[in-house]
Design a protein around this nucleic acid. Sequence first.
DNA 1: GGTGCAATAT
DNA 2: TATATTGCAC
Length: 391
Amino acid sequence: MGSLIPPELILDCTISSKPWIPKSTVEFLAEVSRLDSVSEKISKLDNYVNQLHDEMKKIDAFKRELPLCMILLNDAIATMKEEIMQCKSSDSKPVLEEFIPLKKSISVEKEEKIDDVKETDIINTREKMNWMSSVQLWNSDNNKKRKEEAIDRPVIDELFRSGKNRAAGKAFSPFKGCSNFPAMAIGKEGRDEFPGAPSLSLRTPEIKNSTEEIFRSGFSSKSSSSRTGSSCGTNSQSSFKVDSQQTGRKQRRCWSPELHRRFVSALQQLGGAQAATPKQIRELMQVDGLTNDEVKSHLQKYRLHTRRVGVPPPTNTNTNTSSVEPGLWVSGEQCRSNSQSSSPQGPLHLAGSSRGTSVTGGDSVEDEDDDKSESHSWKTHKHYSSSNRDV
DNA sequence: GGTGCAATAT
DNA sequence: TATATTGCAC
């Protein structure tokens, strides 16, 4: 998608038959104020406004990353327009008439000039253009990715929360008012249709997400009434994928080592994996946000593994594993990021259970012996002992 | 609604 | 391939 250079860009760059030298707004205003002729002032101001508009167009592609630029530009434009209005009002002369043709003449003149301009100038200009376009090209790709991330995440998050409404996530809403740009750029995209949904800025959901992630992946302490959260994905490549959202699949619960420890502990108390039921386990675990389904699934997996392995006694010589085993079989991929981000012990709290304190192997000594054998087997040993499935 | 299993998704 | 989610039957 080589960004085409709009013709007006060329014109503007050479607007006064010489390369346009950017000036700061203040500088420019000062310069204008020195002019005697009101019409000239207005024409200059107008040119400046046009340039600002063009500038805006240029950075439009980057507006997500340059929200402030947009705001600044918008401000500048507003200021200039104000200035123009002032000039007009202060001068009884019908400037408009003068102003319009003036602009035209400039354009025409410009075109003529372009022909006259030395080749070097043209080359310079073109080089600039090329440079610009190449930057855009390069950036647009880059941008796209970022945009996708930036957009998808919040949108998805939002959608996910509000049902499974997925709007065509793209809708590059035209840049309307800069004043509300930041919100618009991020929060608005494709979200206008959901007035009811709290419009969140990009950041909010993101942050919220990560926080939730931490909580839910481990032991959420509270308030996680919605079970949609827990993205176990790596933090770098947000595991949020449009597809997953579109399919309405809930985020994977990551069974962190601690979570698993709790799980096993509960299992112990309930008389083993075979005797325990998901609901009981869940209740014993006292983990907010943990659902029966999740426990059920985990239990299923657990049983499968233990059966396969046939509970291999001590295969693991590193028996001191007591503190770590749970982590062994706990999903590597997804939990990895998770546990790293939320360093197993860290943010994991048990919901109101006093025993939660000893995360890494303190209190749950008894659990160990039993679940050790089991949990060990999960990942470490895969001797498919094809034990008779008692089902 | 809870449970267990299998299919499916990631 | 391992793990988690979902669907379905009981």
